[in-house]
């Protein structure tokens, strides 16, 4: 089964199978050494750039700002949830997310 993944409304949210699933304005803890020098980036998600899927993991690249150090930028691929049997589950908001570099 294919999953329809889209970034919509100027990067405001991610649509999975025509339902709004993940939205901007959350704070994410990221292990993202490329984005800033903090041990963990404390990222305000401002805009989704692109969305993709790696196996069953749905990933996105996002524009945001680390509120600990002020650095802004676009992340590499960050996991945002999983699809199983056509059902999407969002990653726990408190989880530390490890960024995957583009191969």
């Amino acid at each position: 089964m294919t999953t329809r993944l889209r970034v919509l409304d100027d990067g405001a949210w991610i649509s999975v199978n025509d339902a709004r699933e993940v939205r901007v304005s959350e704070l994410w803890r990221l292990d993202a050494p490329d984005l800033c020098e903090c041990t963990l980036t404390d990222l305000v998600v401002e805009n989704f750039q692109t969305v993709g899927v790696d196996g069953s993991t749905v990933e996105a690249r996002v524009y945001g700002q680390c509120i600990a150090c002020g650095e802004t930028g676009i992340t590499d691929w960050v996991p945002i949830g999983r699809v199983r049997g056509g059902e999407f589950t969002e990653l726990d908001r408190g989880a530390v997310r490890r960024v995957r570099r583009e191969a």
């Binding site: 329809r4 889209r6 919509l8 405001a12 949210w13 649509s15 199978n17 025509d18 339902a19 709004r20 939205r23």
Partner: peptide, 22 residues
């Protein structure tokens, strides 16, 4: 249709209708 919602909501904007947030 469930699989056309994103498309229609995008198009409705042209007629001044913007789906409110989540």
């Amino acid at each position: 249709p469930d699989d056309e919602r994103d498309a229609w909501f995008e198009r409705f904007k042209w007629w001044g209708l913007y789906h409110q947030r989540n």
